[in-house]
Simulated assay, not measured.
Amino acid sequence: MNVWILSAGGLGLLTALIHLFAGQADPVRPFLKSNLEDVPKATLLACWHLVSVTLFVSSLALLYVGWHDLQAFYLATRLVGALYLLFALVFIAVGWYFFANKVFIKLPQWTLLLPIGLLASYGAS
């Protein structure tokens, strides 16, 4: 068992659940009620659910690799870790563009994504 990777997977699963349930209430419902045209609205909703799938599948993979300590999958685990680190950087960059120094409060998603990336990367190193 690799507790670092297992922890990354557990935090990832929690993040996926928060994304699925809290995300529906906060950004998705108001967005769907907006006056945006249907094609961009449908595209953005599909992208939202692509993120949901990515969060769930990558978290389950991390849990599996961490539970069984499958060193043969450590390269893939490092790639998943890098993906989460990049996700965190995207939230920080986009948040900085819209909210300047209030980025860390207005878009706190990075606070879950960054530790997942760090835990997975460290566990696979």
Rank of each mutant, 00 (worst) to 15 (best):
I18K: 10
C47G: 09
F99Y: 11
L6N: 08
L6G: 09
K41C: 01
S58R: 05
T111L: 14
Q109V: 12
S58D: 05
Q24S: 11
A93Y: 04
L75N: 02
D38P: 04
V80G: 01
T15K: 10
T15M: 13
L119W: 05
L83R: 04
V103N: 07
A42I: 10
G123C: 00
K33G: 05
S121T: 15
P27I: 12
P30C: 07
T15G: 13
L83M: 14
T77V: 14
W96Y: 15
V57K: 00
L89M: 07
W67N: 08
W67S: 14
I92F: 07
I5S: 03
A93I: 08
F31V: 10
L55M: 11
L6C: 06
F87D: 09
S34C: 02
L11A: 10
G117S: 14
G81S: 02
N2F: 00
Y64Q: 06
V57A: 02
S58E: 05
G95H: 05
N35G: 06
V94T: 10
L75W: 01
G117R: 15
T77Q: 02
Y122W: 13
L17S: 04
G117N: 13
S125M: 12
K41N: 02
F104V: 04
E37N: 00
G123F: 01
S58A: 08
D38H: 06
V94I: 09
Q71R: 13
A88G: 11
H49Q: 12
W4T: 03
V57E: 00
F21Q: 07
L107H: 05
V28W: 13
K102C: 04
H49E: 08
G10H: 12
L32P: 11
S34E: 02
F56K: 01
G10F: 14
Q71N: 07
T111W: 10
L114H: 08
Y122I: 14
D69A: 04
D38M: 09
I116E: 10
L79D: 03
L11C: 15
S121I: 03
P30V: 13
V80P: 02
G81Q: 02
F56L: 10
L36D: 01
T111P: 04
N101I: 04
F87A: 15
S34L: 02
K102P: 01
F21G: 11
G123A: 00
L114F: 15
Q24Y: 08
L63C: 12
T43R: 08
I18G: 12
G117K: 15
V90G: 13
L36R: 03
I105D: 09
L83S: 12
L70S: 12
V90E: 14
K33A: 09
V65M: 00
L113Y: 05
N2C: 00
A124Y: 11
I116M: 14
P108A: 12
L11N: 13
